[in-house]
Design a binder for these strands. Sequence first.
DNA 1: TTTATTCTTGACTGTTTTACTTGGTTATTG
DNA 2: CAATAACCAAGTAAAACAGTCAAGAATAAA
Lengths: 158, 158
Amino acid sequence: MKLSTKGRYAVTAMMDLAIHDREGPVTLADISQTQGISLSYLEQLFAKLRKRGLVEGVRGPGGGYRLARMPHQITVAEIITAVDENVDVMRCHGDGNCQDGVRCLTHELWAELSNRLYEFLDGITLDQFVERPEIREIARRQDEEAKRMNFVFPRPAA
Amino acid sequence: MKLSTKGRYAVTAMMDLAIHDREGPVTLADISQTQGISLSYLEQLFAKLRKRGLVEGVRGPGGGYRLARMPHQITVAEIITAVDENVDVMRCHGDGNCQDGVRCLTHELWAELSNRLYEFLDGITLDQFVERPEIREIARRQDEEAKRMNFVFPRPAA
DNA sequence: TTTATTCTTGACTGTTTTACTTGGTTATTG
DNA sequence: CAATAACCAAGTAAAACAGTCAAGAATAAA
Ligand code: FES
Ligand code: FES
């Protein structure tokens, strides 16, 4: 397992998606602006998320991305493994042969660690966070901020 | 937290150390050969482990490294954080300001994740594995292998 | 039907981290 | 003294990371 900025970005974006799920598809440009993540980088991440069946894209005006499942059916583990391809905690990838073809000293340790780690991350679903009032408050603030940015010149006085 | 080969090497080496703790200091050359890790790379890792007070070095002939504490007092979390300096699961490093100075959407999620992950890794100590018969068996095999390598020509028949 | 919107794809770039090497210098033992 | 083994400082090739750029394809709205 690897927990880097990449996985963090992915989870952040998925959370944004979960929060605005009822308001129709969310555009990557929106997420980019709201969460401060590079648009083109998001595109790469969402390509992977889509291949894993976590999100689905809607093209054309009014389009964007939408969760492919209910928030309580999407776990943090899935999101992270979707974008972080080498999730190899073990050198042997579970085959038990990294020591000249035989099992190495720490195989068991990593196997156990890997299992419990995955179980743990797999127990955290998106909905566990989006429902919290503190989170909703932050989301509301972000939305207002975005609105303020977009309509700074609503109609030039003329 | 970051779980990479680096941390894996460190834990592997520490485990080797824990197993051979009673036979006096263990040399890095031994670990290098037994576990298949580059000697100079081990030196770098052990420099960090030493700075964190996890091991102590004994110089000169017959020297090597030795655990600075009992195996049940050394956790996997300590070992990993010792060699992986940037343990920043959160972009804000706990300050809650990665979103233009204010708390971002996923701050809580990462804080909680970070906490529980650390607690989990902190609950695993070295002795929990070195006592297992399967592990001891692998260690025994490794030792024999090493012996066979060293004494391939014990005394040329003459 | 045109057009704007948005997803989708591929290639490309600079920076950082990994894993490892080279080449030393101390300190300790016999 | 010579052998041993910890210490230390640089440097390096390859990979991963974070991000950019550009072109295209599908679709909804005008
Ligand atoms: S990690 Fe499985 S054999 Fe080494
Ligand atoms: S992670 Fe703490 S504010 Fe974003």
